[in-house]
Amino acid sequence: MREHTLSVPLAEQWGEGIVSIEKGTALDIEVRLESVHEGILVSGSVETVAAGVCSRCLREISQPVEVEFQDLFEYPGSETADFELQDDHVDLETLVRDAIVLSLPFQPVCRPDCPGLDPATGDLLTESPGDAQAPIDPRWAALQKLTETESAD
């Protein structure tokens, strides 16, 4: 068994959409390599920082990403192997990239209670006051007049 701690800068961007790991961002990897009968069992964790925009208000965000991974790198010749040893070396790039990209949020937010943008004006919403009324759909405006006349009586 061997244990290694690595810090590796990314050569290219990982992930697409509104959040990704940018080129040059450091990956802090702790990995354990164990010899087993079928090959090398690789387990470890990786920490990095994802950058993107909030899916509600479009502010720039940056959030930590921590992922654990484990897989078996089999000796060459096995037909069922997902990963194979190559010249007695283990290539972690695909394993780590898949673990990180799959853990990225689909719709990241700057904070859980982010109010987002006003659908009418596109301005950033602040904390909504309690007495604010939602705009009335013009198709229902005639019913609003009925409730106003009943209140006046």
Rank of each mutant, 00 (worst) to 15 (best):
V90G: 09
Y75W: 04
E47C: 02
P119T: 05
L27Y: 09
S128L: 03
I61K: 12
A142R: 09
D153L: 11
E84Q: 11
A99M: 04
L41P: 11
S55L: 01
E84P: 06
D28Y: 07
G39A: 02
K23Y: 08
V36A: 05
A99V: 08
E34N: 15
T126Y: 06
S151A: 09
D71T: 14
S20I: 01
P9Y: 10
L72F: 15
P76T: 14
P9Q: 09
D28M: 03
V46S: 03
S78V: 10
Q63A: 11
V67H: 01
D91I: 12
K145F: 02
G130F: 07
R32P: 00
S78P: 02
E34C: 13
T149R: 11
T80S: 11
L58P: 10
S7Q: 09
S43L: 04
V19A: 04
S62A: 13
A51R: 14
S62Y: 09
S20C: 00
G44F: 05
S20N: 07
R32G: 04
A11S: 13
P135S: 08
R59C: 09
G15Q: 01
F83G: 11
C114F: 04
L85C: 07
A26F: 04
F73W: 14
D118Y: 08
I21W: 03
E47K: 03
A120I: 13
P138L: 05
V8R: 10
G39Q: 07
P9K: 07
T147S: 08
I29C: 03
S62Q: 15
D118V: 11
P119D: 01
L92N: 07
M1L: 07
T25G: 03
P129R: 13
E93H: 09
R2P: 06
F106M: 12
